[in-house]
Design a protein around this nucleic acid. Structure first.
Length: 245
DNA sequence: AAGTGTGTCAACCGCATAAAG
DNA sequence: CCTTTATGCGGTTGACACACT
């Protein structure tokens, strides 16, 4: 995509009209084929933005409002187990998206845990372009009939992720040898053979295979995995363990 | 009252991967 | 195989509201 084409896309909040166009499109065509949506609907947005808008806001499965104590507790536990695998965490927190969980963690839970709030350097303030009030009225999710979605759409929704994250188990990630091996040893008791990875794929449906992915999220010291018999149970069993604690 | 700093949330960016051609 | 396209993910940033001085 060239710079000229890029310039037609906005980087601002979605308007009510844009939401309506996107929802109308999804009602008719279902989700997927996101890159075609701008052309078909005339939306001045990237396909990726359309997908994000649907997943994070317009989808009827998205829960709005404050996080409950139970949700906080759940996220904290899951973060201990999974690290910054937000999509996996969100998949276990009904109604919450990875973006919501990530924001909530960075802005609230970090402080709650006393690990320091998420801070970033601030740039010079820029002129306000739209009132918050407008944003709120604009962003009101519109009702959508689930039956209008195509079969299989639920698989792509954030809270119905029933398939393993192949991205997480990428060869590139596992290719960080040594560290990744450590994880596989922890989880499978093996030396990280293909069989081990295959086993994980077969057994970890629903939770993905986070431990096979990049080691940057793995902190054996904070997980409590030592309490688990990790070489013979699936991650779903681990999940049940954490649920029961 | 006005200016500034901070918290929060929505959206975007860049990258990786799988699937399709 | 190689290239292109579609999708998904985590990190980062923009924009707004509100608290504080």
């Amino acid at each position: 995509m060239g710079a000229e084409e890029c310039s037609q896309y906005k980087k601002v909040l979605w308007t009510e009209e844009e939401d309506r166009l996107l929802l109308d499109h999804i009602r008719v065509h279902g989700t997927g084929r996101w890159n075609r949506i701008p052309k078909l609907t005339g939306l001045p947005r990237h396909g990726k933005s359309c997908r994000l808008r649907w997943l994070n806001y317009l989808s009827p499965t998205v829960k709005r409002g404050e996080f409950s104590e139970e949700e906080d507790e759940l996220i904290i536990r899951l973060h201990k187990l999974l690290g910054n695998r937000w999509s996996l965490i969100a998949g276990r927190v009904p109604g919450r998206t990875d973006n919501q969980v990530k924001n909530h963690w960075n802005t609230r839970l970090c402080k709650k845990l006393g690990t320091g709030s998420f801070k970033r350097p601030r740039k010079d303030p820029k002129p306000k372009c739209r009132a918050r009030e407008e944003q709120e009225t604009t962003n009101l999710p519109l009702p959508i009939n689930d039956s209008s979605l195509n079969a299989g759409d639920c698989d792509r929704l954030p809270h119905h992720q029933s398939t393993i994250s192949t991205t997480s188990a990428s060869t590139a990630d596992v290719g960080v040898e040594g560290e990744a091996l450590t994880k596989e040893k922890l989880l499978t008791g093996s030396e990280g053979s293909d069989d081990g990875e295959e086993w994980m794929r077969d057994h970890c449906v629903g939770l993905g295979s986070p431990m096979l992915s990049s080691d940057r999220y793995f902190d054996p010291s904070n997980v409590g995995l030592e309490d688990l018999v990790v070489d013979s149970c699936s991650l779903d069993q681990i999940w049940q363990h954490f649920l029961s604690n």
